[in-house]
Design a protein around this nucleic acid. Structure first.
Lengths: 341, 341
DNA sequence: TTTAGCACTCGGTCACTGGGAGTGCTAACA
DNA sequence: TGTTAGCACTCCCAGTGACCGAGTGCTAAA
């Protein structure tokens, strides 16, 4: 268990290091007005903290920097939850006042603003469409054998899919099929669509449509919703401003991660309530072992829809980012509720 | 006018510099087997070429590097059009054999492969949907006052738009409207949709629908196609491999360009036949003043649909890239024709 | 006109140096 | 017993100068 003084010193080191990106020496800490000890005392405590694994020393005659364990303790015990400054809150709220209709665009703008305020990289996942419900399905034939199926959900999301029409299936049977699907499946969540077709529509189809089996498969194909979650990035180049990423190789690793968008999904293994912080190796990817991720879930009608995350160096300004994400996800969810709820 | 020998030397300098990224000295050129002159002679010629503006010297006792004018002459007169090696052609053709249904995905894959082969950044614009024709329009009401309009084109492209339904317009009038639009507008190119509505549908509407003016405006909104051209990037991190972009500031400029996708549209001011090369300042953006862009247009039914471009340092391997783009755009267009033509 | 030779220039690398920041240890102090 | 001042030591870093090699321009000879 850390003493009160050790906690104070650890906090000071982390704060200073976050601010300056330079190893923190005993003298500079003893000079702070909230610390009433001499440099020598601080040195002793720092040596202890290093032994306990909270601090590290880049080389003998240098100051200390926080270890990942140190950051973890700092995040868990040493930061007061802080309300972001007015102007930052305002910048975010202005977004929601804009009345942007398209959700995608809304998300893109949010990512942008958040990246601007934090100076880190923002990653937004979603929205997850699996839980949303079918509102309408339409099939538009393009030529004899090719058609496009269009699915609209209750949140206004549109999924399309090119499909090949099997030989021997006429346009009229497709039309009948689509009518049937619309009559029976509206309101069913997307992830249940396929099962529902096979379970409930079989007899119905037998009655109304010829070549039932073919058509059933076709229907399944029509309804195959795209399971891909969209990934939005912003502020990717902010990483270049961080002194710890001067190294081109590291930088390249991180940037390629952004290019191959889907890989970052591994960084967000679960959608939990509240603000999550993952530090250094707690992330599942080697490329970001020197980064931290602060993330939070946004919801619609209590259902988690997606994730807003901020990626920065482990030396990131946790206080600020956590405060921002906390407010932002709540506002964002509220905004969604007003749009679709 | 350059003498035969000057052309040979200029070509050698550019070739070597493209290969090594190091200033080229007189000795290394005189050693090449296709050059039968001593270093001293080469030096004289190089001094002349510098005076003429085709070469530059980073500092007094260094070799020469090509100027932008030098590259221009090289591209215009000194490279034979070269057929890319078999394995590269094959890598591209494999793509088209994959039978990827979705055009977007197809484009993304193409960009990726091209970036892999060239080791530069690829930028693909399009497809341009303005010229495509309306196949179907659908309106799906989400709630009392909100609906989603979905437009399907003859190329299977789907555009959606959230719309607010003006007060006092009933669902049945909307239904009538949509039926009318479908009956009258199928086959009309997207860019003519709006005009056509106002010109041709006015009387028709007056007869069938009440509150005509409102409805007319609504129709216009429904048909407002998204004019945004999509921009696909791949291989953005390849830029980091180029020795000329070690400088973080330059790098940042270029990478932010990719992040703010739309800005790059300025780099492709026109859609012309054949392969275009723009060198250094010939591009309209300061950020890429040390880059060159090789681009070509892909078409559908003879209509230009979009652009495939490769962005690299001015020291890029023009021979290879030009050859590749030439083949690729032709294959790509042919593939599109098979899919939609 | 071409080439060989030579003096010169300049950037890059390496070893060396001194200064500064910071430490750990010891001994004195409250 | 906990805290502090003092001091010797460590290590990084920036600056310096010497040196090397690649390349040039010029001149004179072939």
């Amino acid at each position: 268990m850390l003493s009160q003084r050790q906690r104070l010193i650890l906090q000071s080191v982390v704060d200073d290091y976050i601010r300056t990106a330079e190893p923190v020496g005993s003298r500079s800490i003893s000079k702070r007005k909230d610390v009433g000890f001499s440099a020598a005392t601080i040195r002793n405590e720092m040596a202890d903290l290093e032994e306990l694994g909270y601090l590290e020393q880049p080389h003998t005659s240098a100051g200390r920097i926080p270890s990942n364990l140190g950051y973890r303790f700092y995040v868990d015990h040493l930061i007061p939850t802080v309300r972001p400054p007015r102007n930052e809150i305002k910048a975010l709220r202005n977004l929601f006042a804009l009345k942007i209709d398209e959700l995608e665009q809304m998300i893109a703008e949010t990512a942008k603003i958040l990246a601007q305020i934090t100076n880190y990289t923002t990653i937004i996942l979603g929205p997850q469409v699996f839980g949303t419900k079918l509102k309408h399905i339409q099939v538009v034939p393009l030529s004899e054998r090719v058609a496009v199926s269009v699915i609209v959900t209750d949140t206004g999301h549109v999924e399309k899919r090119r499909i090949k029409v099997p030989e021997g299936i006429s346009l009229t049977s497709i039309e009948k099929l689509v009518n049937l699907l619309n009559a029976k499946l509206v309101g069913v969540p997307l992830y249940k669509l396929k099962d529902t077709v096979y379970e409930k529509l079989r007899e119905e189809l037998l009655r109304h449509v010829d070549q039932c089996e073919y058509v059933l498969d076709l229907a399944a194909e029509l309804l195959q919703a795209d399971p891909n979650v969209k990934v939005h990035f912003s502020g990717t180049t902010n990483m270049l401003d961080q002194p710890e990423f001067r190294d081109l190789e590291k930088m390249k690793g991180i940037l390629s991660l952004f290019e191959e968008g889907k890989t970052v999904l591994q960084l967000f293994p679960l959608m939990e309530e509240g603000v999550q912080v993952r530090i250094g190796h707690e992330n599942n990817l080697e490329e970001v072992s020197q980064c931290s991720i602060v993330s939070a879930t946004y919801t619609l009608k209590g259902r988690p829809l997606g994730i807003i995350g901020v990626l920065g160096p482990t030396r990131m300004n946790y206080k600020k980012v956590i405060g921002l994400l906390d407010i932002l996800t709540k506002d964002f969810s509220e905004h969604l509720r007003r749009l679709y709820g």
